[in-house]
Design a protein around this nucleic acid. Structure first.
Lengths: 216, 216
DNA sequence: CGTTCATAACGTACAGTGTATAGTACGGTG
DNA sequence: CACCGTACTATACACTGTACGTTATGAACG
């Protein structure tokens, strides 16, 4: 009985396939069994290469982080920072699963470290001390992660008619007397759940605040 | 055979119990069956009050949002904004499940709207136009959500020795030649994954940037 | 009081999940 | 050729959310 030949699998192949499954079937519908089936292999075969589902997640995350371009060396530091943040956001939009992969687990992995190195290097070169550089890195990272995750999530929900209906219902149940601002700004709020402008608005606030602290 | 008496359940009781289960057993281990068992009832009994798990999630989220205090009326607007953001963060730290409840679903619900109303009201009163108020609201919300979720997540991982070991391993595999900043700033990075100072640092950057745009 | 009836809670069942454990056949090495 | 590590398989378990159909209860009404 012709079994599966011996060395068909590899960590890289599994990661690539896992990514494909996440992108085609959606992150929530992702399962080890799905990946295994796609590879024409039993579910347990994956455990030869990854100890559990979380380790596979980490590998996929690091793989995606490897797609980030290097920081451009020939620009003023605020522009460099902007570029790094924008490319991370772009990558998250291109690969929506990345949002969940980043949010759920600590940042282990070589490629992930490379990205951190890029941003930290820029900040150190700009003259910020160790503590401020680290704080700024965390702040920027959590801003990008939070705002882009939110954007992705909302875009996904907008496609679900049931969720949309429920949100509409809540909105319309609000009296203009008790909730004047929410009712008045409803269209603006709907418009500002995502998009480049919204992202840049917050990023510019952070950068403006940061430039006030520019070291001598 | 003495069945469960008739009107033992109610949406409020279920929400309270669900919250207890999340807090005691952890958000990930939460399940409808667990809640039902805690109530001494079959799993399907919950479906009389909630159409599915997500609706129960929404109800718990809105219940938690109801715990937020009103915005203090007697302060300068930047302080009011700071207070709102801080109390949301505090609530998330007190109820770690709130992070996941906020991140995963759109903001429906009465209490949730009340919180939005508070922040938007402050911004409108400060003189910001509709668009800027909405953008600022989204920016602040995603910052609080992103940074606090990250903080909670990291705190949870730190308790898992396996995750800790893996992160250490990654760190120590980095050569000081290729990753000078990461290696140098490792202690600072570890220290800035959370805490009041870290949160306030980012919040102050945003507020500083925002004050540069203070309307006349 | 007796009857009716909507419905709250039940039990069963299904299609999934991650993964522990044990078994099997292949490929490279002695 | 014999051996052994290992890449993969098979089976099984304890879960999950929830669709479906049933049953008993408490209130309303004649």
């Amino acid at each position: 009985m012709a079994r599966t030949p011996r060395n068909t699998l590899s960590p890289e192949l599994i990661v690539r396939t896992a990514l494909e499954v996440m992108e085609s079937r959606g992150t929530d519908a992702f399962s080890l069994r799905g990946v295994a089936a796609e590879l024409g292999v039993g579910p347990m075969a994956l455990y030869t290469y990854f100890r559990n589902k979380d380790e596979l997640y980490d590998a996929v995350r690091d793989h995606l982080m490897g797609l980030l371009p290097a920081v451009p060396g020939d620009a003023a530091w605020p522009d460099q920072v902007r570029t790094v943040c924008r490319s991370l956001r772009l990558l998250m939009l291109q690969h929506p699963c990345l949002a969940q992969l980043l949010a759920g687990r600590p940042l282990s992995g070589h490629e992930t470290a490379r990205v951190a190195e890029g941003l930290l290097g820029v900040l150190r070169a700009a003259g910020f001390d160790a503590e401020t550089a680290a704080r700024t890195h965390t702040t920027l990272f959590t801003y990008v992660l939070g705002s882009t995750s939110w954007e992705i999530q909302m875009a996904a929900e907008r496609r679900d008619p049931e969720a949309w209906r429920r949100l509409r219902a809540t909105m319309e149940s609000l009296s203009a007397r008790d909730f004047p601002s929410v009712v008045e700004l409803a269209p603006e709020l709907a418009r500002t759940t995502g998009g480049d402008e919204q992202f840049d608005y917050g990023l510019d606030l952070l950068l403006a605040g940061l430039q006030l602290r520019t070291p001598a």
